[in-house]
């Protein structure tokens, strides 16, 4: 099996809040191999964005790692020097956010910013950088890139801004591209185009992609492997085909069952999971999903579920899943 390029090892992280802490990531293990596309799914508030931000050491000031490590090519990124951290962000790992506006300053042209993003290319002249930026804009499907370089971010449509943000992220040829809900703010046709673009870019540049989304269709279209999160834990990990055709964790099963896109029969009512995520200030002793789970037994409420290995790339965190 190929060595992981980025690995999250038993990571636990909490946010300090008035009167305590929220335990947002709990013993998360995940490995990203070179060139693969990994999807992170799960309902709102389960910790997807926190995990994605942790991979690039961009968690908020009140975040605190209580255990574990994040290793890039074997080195813990939280023990890097300031210089190495700068190299990490952008050159090795780049990030694209849900709101493409956040990638750009409103007061500078797109071109000026795409040139600045290449600060690491010390040997290159400004002209080289301008040309590289222009080429990358063309590559992400922006027509008339020379013209686009002189525009300000607000003059772009949402879809164009997200393309430009992806161009910015790719300019440094990162080994890993992390995209947090990159299509959530876009409409269906733009979403389809961004998915298509990411797939092409992945084939061209061979970078690994981590994509965070609660849209199961996006993951199915794009990913090789999927990690499903629930209440700060990875509850199931599987190759994409297995996840959609043989989901094993009760939460994954419930999540897939309530996607209206997977329900053929038109009915006035749609299935829902019911209940809420537990309060992560005091994580429950047993399985976090137990109060909502249709398969739960008495021990699910009291004992932490084991990680059941189901295959070389498959596991589920559940008492009731048989290996």
């Amino acid at each position: 099996m190929t060595e992981a390029i980025l690995s999250v090892e038993n990571l636990s992280l909490r946010y300090r809040v008035p009167g305590g802490a929220v335990h947002v990531l709990r013993d998360v293990r995940l490995a990203i191999r070179p060139g693969e596309v990994l999807g992170i799914a799960g309902e709102s508030g389960c910790g997807k964005s926190t995990l994605a931000a942790a991979m690039i050491d961009l968690t908020g000031a009140n975040a605190e790692r209580t255990s574990g490590a994040i290793r890039l090519r074997g080195e813990d990124i939280l023990h890097l020097s300031a210089d190495d951290r700068r190299r990490l962000r952008g050159a090795e790992v780049a990030m694209v956010f849900q709101d493409p506006m956040t990638a750009f300053s409103p007061v500078l042209t797109i071109g000026a910013q795409l040139v600045d993003f290449q600060f690491n290319r010390t040997g290159a002249s400004r002209r080289d950088k301008w040309q590289a930026a222009c080429g990358m804009l063309a590559r992400v499907g922006i027509s008339d890139p020379d013209h686009a370089m002189r525009r300000f971010p607000h003059e772009f449509s949402g879809g164009m801004r997200q393309r430009a943000a992806i161009a910015a992220a790719l300019l440094m040829r990162p080994a890993v591209l992390i995209a947090d809900e990159p299509t959530t703010a876009l409409d269906v046709t733009m979403e389809a185009q961004i998915i298509h673009l990411l797939r092409e870019l992945q084939a061209d540049y061979g970078c690994a992609i981590v994509i965070v989304t609660h849209h199961l269709g996006v993951i199915a279209e794009l990913c090789d492997r999927v990690a499903v999160m629930y209440a700060g834990q990875v509850v199931e990990e599987a190759p994409v085909d297995d996840l959609y055709h043989d989901p094993r964790h009760p939460y994954t099963q419930a999540l897939l069952a309530c996607d209206p896109a997977r329900i053929e029969e038109r009915s006035g009512r749609l299935p829902a999971i019911g209940g809420r995520l537990p309060d992560l200030r005091t994580p429950p002793p047993g399985c976090a999903f137990a109060p909502r789970c249709s398969k739960a037994t008495a021990r699910c409420l009291t004992d932490a579920p084991p990680r059941v290995v189901l295959g070389p790339d498959r596991s589920a965190l559940c008492h009731e899943v048989a290996p």
Partner: peptide, 24 residues
């Protein structure tokens, strides 16, 4: 037709190789 075809389908076996609708 294009709008319906563009919707990402939650089944990896139904991936589209091409784009249902181009441009903005």
């Amino acid at each position: 037709q294009s709008l319906i075809a563009a919707e990402p389908r939650p089944d990896p076996r139904l991936r589209r190789a091409d784009l249902a609708i181009r441009g903005e």
